[in-house]
Amino acid sequence: MEMQQIKFYQTGTFTVGNRLLDADQRSVQANMERTNSLNSGHRACQGCGEALGARYAIDAAMRAANNQVIACNATGCLEVFSTPYPETSWQIPWIHSLFGNAAAVATGVAAAMKVKGRRDVRVIAQGGDGGTTDIGFGCLSGMFERNDDVLYICYDNEAYMNTGVQRSSATPPAARTATTMALGPEPGNAFGQGKNVPLIAMAHGIPYVATASVAYLRDLEEKVKRAMSLSGARYIHILVPCPLGWGAQPSDTIKLARLAVETGLFPLFEAEHGEVVGSTRIRRRVPVEEYLKPQKRFAHLFGKTPAVGTLARIQEMADRNIRKYRLIDERRHG
């Protein structure tokens, strides 16, 4: 991604807006006339990262597509809190079909648009981590493999939150969920091999894959914009903290999203046609404890006898990401 080099502007592009920047350098979210694709009155919990991520992403997509966007939504929190009869929060054409078929429904919509000659209309599929990395994975992979003209956005809050915080394949190791209790010799979720869906998406060789975070709005918007500039299957995986499921303060949603990146646990990168083309540097590297501690789902790691070994393994995951994705500018940090 070509990020524009800008002069020193007090908060640069770290804040949502910046009155000192030119209009074209401002974020979509700073705009007074932003779409608010996901309107007020939705029933997401206080401090919901997914509600935020969805508005960020869809508003950016709307801007990029001149408001010609149709969204297909998997079952899950986002669907439930946005469209309980008799009210919907969506201001765009939107459909919810099932838990595991958002990608396929989107394929169908895209096919209809193509056959009807509505090339200007862009199609987005979206779902949580359960609907993406687990139950919807078959349809997702199929959509990738066919290179259907769909942007799939996964809002990853690392568990099945809508059903009461059960483990998904995106749940991180050691995290407590309702199905990975903080009990026994190895409390919390097991250390598996992980299921890195962005990497799996890349393995399909699709035009564009990116990870993003609600704490890095400009980065997120740039990635959506880039994705919208391409045709074919595209995938963006956004980390969206869940105050309820993570056992965190609602006010800490963005802070945690930021710490996930600054620890190296959630690397921000993008790939085109299967090759990593860029990663977002960590600004102020922090140890993983700083990210884990404010979350009750990791509270068992910080008891009277801290789980030093487990923490070291998690730190190793972060360190590996930092090496792999070159998350630290070697010139600056020696």
Binding site: Q10, N18, Q29, S40, G49, L52
Partner: peptide
């Protein structure tokens, strides 16, 4: 200009749009 822009604007809104952007409820 550079030096002025180093000001953190402590305690006084400088219209960075953060509150406007980060509200999950568009409130």
């Amino acid at each position: 200009l550079f030096e002025a822009r180093r000001c953190l604007s402590c305690g006084n809104c400088f219209e960075c749009d953060n509150c406007y952007g980060v509200c999950p409820d568009n409130a």
